[in-house]
Amino acid sequence: MKAAEVGTPKRTKEIIAKYGFSFKKSLGQNFLIDQNILHNIVAAAELDKSKGALEIGPGIGALTQQLAEEAGTVTAVEIDQRLIPILRDVLAEQPHVEVIHGDVLKLDLKQLFQEQFSKVERVSVVANLPYYVTTPILMKLLEERLPLENIVVMIQKEVAQRMAAKPGGKEYGSLSVAVQYYCEPKLVCIVPHTVFIPQPNVDSAVIKLTLRDTPAVEVPDEDHYFRIVQGSFTQRRKTLANNLTSLVGKENREALTELLTASGIDPTRRGETLSLEEFAVISRAFLAKGWG
Rank of each mutant, 00 (worst) to 15 (best):
L276T: 01
A241L: 15
R237V: 06
L240H: 08
T245H: 01
L247N: 03
S263K: 07
L274G: 04
Y225M: 05
L260K: 08
E251S: 05
T214C: 00
T214A: 14
R212N: 10
P198D: 06
E254R: 12
Q230Y: 07
R269E: 03
N201F: 02
I207E: 11
L187C: 11
V248L: 10
N201Q: 14
T261N: 07
T245R: 06
H193V: 00
R269Q: 13
K250C: 01
S246I: 13
E218N: 11
S283L: 01
S204R: 08
V188R: 04
L274V: 07
L244M: 08
I207L: 08
L240C: 07
G249F: 13
I190E: 14
L260W: 14
Q230L: 04
V206Q: 05
T257K: 15
H224Q: 14
L276V: 00
E272L: 13
T210Q: 14
F226I: 01
E277P: 00
T245P: 03
E254S: 11
E272W: 11
L187A: 06
V202F: 12
S246R: 15
N201E: 15
S204Q: 10
D203N: 14
G231K: 09
I265P: 09
L209R: 10
E278G: 02
D203W: 14
L256V: 00
